[in-house]
């Protein structure tokens, strides 16, 4: 794997942030945007990212004064989408990518980078944060965290996850380290199968992004959140891992965000500033909440983040990825 120059990476992303925040009052592209903005979505049409994007774009388009055109390029855990965005789209601020900073960046840390470097693009607008959580099937013999820790000290427990390189998997590995319980991660390919695995007893329990767990309703019971439980009852009032076990783990999030070519932001600072401003303004509009709720999102998870918050999160993911790489890739 190509080593990432971390300091250089942070410097450029922070630099881009400062530069563009300073720029808008001086030069302003009065005529941007002249046409629709294309958004690459590296997952399947009809999935969570699709709904999320629609809810957000519904409001953002009025702030920016142009339409967004989504293009879906699923495959290879999101890599196809990023390849298409970096390889085929002009860096002119007329195209963005709407990715997931959690699993997609983590995946990046696991696999050899390809035709472009991870700092050739950067996330500038976070839409939501959705922490991973640990849950059991309604009929499971393990009904509390104490049951799980006790059982995990006696035998290695099989734990379903949607895939190895996922923030929720890291949360579980950290739990194992903190408690001494033994866990064996079983990748069940996708949220649907991960829920099914826990419910039907294929695995002892599962870890997953909480949005999908909330959707599973009474079939499952959540015991622990790898981050803050922002929804309370909907996740069975499960405590956060840091509170319950005194750990100091950053939130293990699935976090959707818009990203842009670094070159585009550097070459067209005025355009980029307009994107940023209107993105931020979208969060101030009460219609966003309505739109988000009407498309089935969890409103508590809406959370604005700018260039710096995104860079910080991405960096944390890359570091955790590097730390746990041997366990997650079998290398």
């Amino acid at each position: 794997m190509k080593t990432l120059d971390r300091r250089g990476f942070l410097k450029t992303s922070a630099g881009a942030g400062v530069m563009t925040l300073a720029a808008p009052t001086i030069v302003r592209a009065a005529d941007f945007p002249e046409r629709n903005i294309k958004v690459i979505i590296p997952t399947r049409e009809g999935g969570g990212a699709d709904r999320n994007f629609r809810a957000f774009a519904e409001v953002w388009k009025d702030k920016l004064g142009t339409d967004f055109e989504p293009g879906f390029f699923p495959g290879a855990s999101g890599r196809v989408g990023y390849e298409v965005y970096m390889g085929k789209e002009e860096p002119d601020c007329y195209s963005l990518i709407f990715g997931n900073m959690g699993p997609e960046v983590l995946n990046w840390a696991m696999q050899e980078p390809s035709n472009f470097s991870v700092d050739d693009y950067f996330y500038f607008g976070r839409v939501d944060v959705d922490p991973g959580c640990l849950f059991v099937g309604a009929e499971s013999g393990l009904q509390t965290m104490d049951d799980i820790i006790a059982a995990g000290k006696e035998r290695k427990l099989n734990v379903g996850t949607s895939r190895m390189a996922h923030p929720a998997s890291i949360g579980l590995l950290a739990l194992g380290e903190a408690t001494g319980a033994q866990f064996n991660l079983i990748p069940l390919s996708g949220g649907k199968n991960t829920v099914a695995g826990a419910v039907t007893g294929e695995v002892d329990f599962s870890v997953l992004t909480s949005g999908s767990v909330i959707a599973a309703g009474d079939a499952v019971k959540t015991l622990l959140v790898f981050g803050e439980n922002r929804v309370g009852e909907a996740l069975d009032n499960a405590p956060s891992m840091n509170d319950a076990f005194g750990t100091n783990l950053p939130e293990m999030l699935s976090s959707r965000a818009f990203a842009i070519h670094r070159k585009a932001a550097e070459d067209y600072p005025d355009r980029f500033a307009k994107l940023q401003e209107s993105f931020k303004a979208t969060f101030e509009d009460p219609r966003l909440l309505e739109s988000y709720v009407s498309l089935g999102g969890t409103p508590e998870y809406l959370s604005y983040g700018g260039v710096e918050e995104c860079a910080e999160f991405m960096q944390a993911m890359l570091e955790l990825g590097a730390k746990y790489k041997p366990l997650l890739t079998g290398a």
Partner: peptide, 13 residues
């Protein structure tokens, strides 16, 4: 399990 690419002839697809 570990998402190792195999026999893909370099095609992400």
């Amino acid at each position: 399990v570990y998402a190792t690419p195999r026999g893909t002839m370099g095609f992400l697809e």
